[in-house]
Amino acid sequence: MEIHVLVKQTYDPNTLEPNPKTLEPIYERAQTKLSDFDLNALEEGIRMKENFKGRVVVISAGPDVKPLLIREALAMGADEAYVVSDKRLEHADGWVYANVLASLSRTVGNADLILCGECSVDEGGYQVGPRVAEKLGLPSVTHVIRIHAEQEGLRVERDLEEGREVLDVKLPIVLTVGLEINTPRLPSLLMIRAASKKPINSVPLESLGLDENELRPRVVCASVRALKVERKRVVISGSLDEAAEKLLSELVREGLVRI
């Protein structure tokens, strides 16, 4: 089975801090990592490979893809990586990424299964999976939390707000997975180092044959700012009854409670 896993490198939200004045994130001080959801997708792909044989290919694109992080993905058990690293993807949105990743996947070969996280930890757009499927003319199932291999195709469970949906699907297909699907394995440092033997293929953006339209973001981000929550620091004193009374009237005055 040929499995392609789409993996995004994102800022680590834990290390993103706002500039105290402008409230804009200080990107230079932030670290990058592989998006959590995509690691779940990768883990699922590797487990399928372990059970049914085949090959797992990591497909990644971004403005500055770090080989070390790709190596972590390979260390988990993927066989090979194809990477487009191009400054022009700096402001890419779901549309642009889907175009790039779909073309890249097609360049690598016809996948039986394309896996990716249902969204990324930095933008959370939920766009790329279904768009890639559309672009490749494949069906897609989103929010997958369980995958069973069946005689023909797969049985997948979706986690929806109103319940679980179980679908029998045929390959080839694109599946986007949630965090619940598994716990991604952590490769040891030695495994990461040993993975340097596995190939990381760098693919130039031009070679994908995408036109200007396909590379023009549909969404333009105007600005990103941290929410600033000022605490009111009100101390209410008095006996329990008095204090409760005062608290209530305070909450009513703030419009948080209606009587």
Binding site: M76, G77, N182, T183, P184, R185, L186, S188, L190, M191
Partner: peptide, 10 residues
């Protein structure tokens, strides 16, 4: 060496 899968240990 085999890759840990416990969430908290990971």
């Amino acid at each position: 060496m085999g890759g840990i899968t416990d969430q908290k240990i990971t």
